[in-house]
């Protein structure tokens, strides 16, 4: 079987889930601590990159995976635009209008629409960084000498 040695594979089994959960933690707590959408998205993409490195390209069926991540990235972009223009529905004429209640400072559910932006920006960044990695390792084979 291709890929790296058995030690790296077994450790990847145990650690990939923890890395994914840590990325989600950084994204969701973006309005309370440093980090936010971009940094958390990079860590979420890192968990998929780790699986691809340890198990090799055949394990994830790379070409199918690439079209899937493209769809996820486009959906996330559309959601960000929809939330940004949602202020028009409430009678104002500004982008990025805050139409949700603000909540208490320091709680998890607070700061209006800011956590929603963080979640979709995180999805967008994770999908696009994974696409960059995949295109680097797929298209290198097909390029003419």
């Amino acid at each position: 079987m291709k890929g790296m040695t058995i030690i790296v594979k077994k450790t990847t089994q145990l650690i990939a889930g923890m890395i994914f959960m840590y990325g989600i933690y950084i994204i969701v707590h973006g309005h309370l601590t440093p980090g936010g959408g971009f940094a958390g998205g990079v860590i979420v993409a890192g968990s998929f990159i780790l699986v691809t490195l340890a198990y090799g390209g055949d394990f994830l069926k790379l070409v199918k995976e690439e079209s899937g991540t493209t769809i996820i990235e486009s959906l996330a972009t559309i959601m960000v635009i929809l939330i940004a223009t949602a202020g028009f529905l409430f009678g104002t004429r500004v982008f990025f209008n805050n139409f949700l209640p603000k909540g208490v400072v320091g709680q998890l559910v607070s700061a209006g629409v800011l956590p929603l932006y963080n979640i979709f920006v995180g999805t967008e960044v994770a999908a696009s960084i994974f696409i960059i990695f995949l295109s680097l390792i797929i298209f290198k084979e097909e390029s003419p000498k």
Binding site: M4, T5, I7, V8, T11, L14, I15, M18
Partner: peptide, 13 residues
């Protein structure tokens, strides 16, 4: 434990 696993596996690779 994260530091322990990552550094030993990194050194092995």
């Amino acid at each position: 434990p994260i530091l322990f696993f990552t550094s030993t596996v990194g050194a092995h690779a």
